[in-house]
Design a protein around this nucleic acid. Structure first.
Lengths: 166, 166
DNA sequence: CGCATATCGTCAGTATGCTGACTGTTAACG
DNA sequence: CGTTAACAGTCAGCATACTGACGATATGCG
C-alpha cells in the first residue's frame, strides 16, 4: 500500500464535480453501467443480458459442464448462476441434465435455439464490447486492457466468484 | 469504430481460460465485483455499501440537494436512488424534507449519526478504493485511472444515470 | 458398515440497477 | 384562465449479485 496521494489522476479538466471521480471503485461502477447500457442497445432485439451471453458462450465452448464449473468460468456466484441458468432454461435456450453417476450435478447444454441465438448475437455483442473502450486510441486502449486484466487477475480471490485460473 | 482485431490485448500469459477475458465488459464486471468485495471487507463494521457511501458523501458536501440532483451527482437511476435513500432514512443516517416552494422536491440532509458514520468510514473506504488498483505500480496506475476517467466521460450519456458534467 | 465431512444445487432474504407506468405538482402557452 | 407539457417521486416488475441456511448426495475414515 503506497502512500502517495490516494489516486492522483487529475480527472480531466475540472469536469465531474465532487471527489467521487477520484475513487476508482466509483469509476468502475459507472463504466460497468455504461457497458451494460451499450450491450442492451446493441442486443435489444435478443433480450439477452451480458451475463446471460457470457454463460451461453462458455456453454457453447464447453458443453456438459456442471453449474459449479460454470461459476468458475463465468465469475458468478453459484446462487446467481442458478438463477440465470433457470431463466435461460425457461426460454429453452439451454438444457440441464442430472448426472446419474453423481446425482448432485446438473450438466448444462445449449439447445439448438440457444446456439442459433448466440450466433446471431456475435456481431452486436462484439460491437458493444468495442464501443465500451472505443474512446481510447490504439495504444492507450491496449495499455488499459492490459492493466484491467492485471487488476482482475490480482484481485481474483476476493469475493465469492473467483475465476478458475487454468 | 475502428476495425482492428476487436480488443487485442493479449490478456497476460495463457491465464484465464476461454475468450471471456478478451471482452472489456467482462473484465469491467469482474473488477466491479472485486471492488465491492474489498469495500465490504474494509467496511464490514458499518454495514454500508459503496453506493450508500457515495450518496452520503455527496449529501455531506452538498446538503439539501433534492433526489433528482443527487442522481446526477452519484450516477444512479432515480428509482434506485429513491430505494437507497429510503433505506438510509430508515436507519436514520439521512433525513428528507419536502420543499414548500416546490412540493415535488424532497431535499436530502445527513443526520448527526450519518455524519459520524461517514467520518468513521473515511479511512476504510479509502483503503478499499486503493486496494482495488493496488496491483498497478505508480505510473501504470495513473495511466489506468486517466483512461478509466476518459471512458466514463466519453460514455456518460449512455444509460439512464448520466453524471452532471459541471 | 456407519458416521462425519464435504460438495452441489437450491432457497429466502437483501441490495443495486433498470424499465415503464402512475400520481401529484409545477410551468408554459394559447 | 384553463388546458397541456414537463417534471419529481414512487411503484411494480425483472435481472444481477451476494449471504446464510438447507436438503440431497458422495466420500472419507474408523
Amino acid at each position: 500500500m503506497t502512500d502517495e496521494p490516494t489516486c492522483a489522476c487529475a480527472p480531466f479538466d475540472g469536469i465531474m464535480a465532487g471527489n467521487l471521480a477520484e475513487r476508482p471503485g466509483f469509476l468502475i461502477r459507472r463504466l460497468h453501467q455504461i457497458h451494460v447500457a451499450l450491450f442492451a442497445e446493441e442486443c435489444a432485439a435478443f433480450n439477452v443480458t451480458p451475463v446471460q451471453y457470457s454463460i451461453m458462450s462458455v456453454v457453447l465452448a464447453q458443453p456438459g459442464r456442471d453449474q459449479n464449473e460454470l461459476t468458475q468460468e463465468v465469475g458468478v456466484d453459484r446462487a446467481t448462476l442458478a438463477n440465470v441458468v433457470a431463466r435461460l432454461e425457461k426460454r429453452a435456450l439451454i438444457r440441464r441434465e442430472r448426472t446419474p453417476s453423481d446425482r448432485r450435478l446438473k450438466r448444462v447444454y445449449l439447445t439448438e435455439a440457444g446456439a442459433a441465438l448466440l450466433d446471431q448475437m456475435a456481431e452486436p455483442a462484439r460491437r458493444a464490447h468495442l464501443r465500451t473502450v472505443e474512446a481510447l486510441a490504439g495504444r492507450e486502449r491496449t495499455a488499459f486492457l492490459r492493466s484491467l486484466t492485471r487488476l482482475v487477475v490480482a484481485g481474483n480471490a476476493y469475493g465469492r466468484a473467483p475465476l478458475r485460473m487454468s
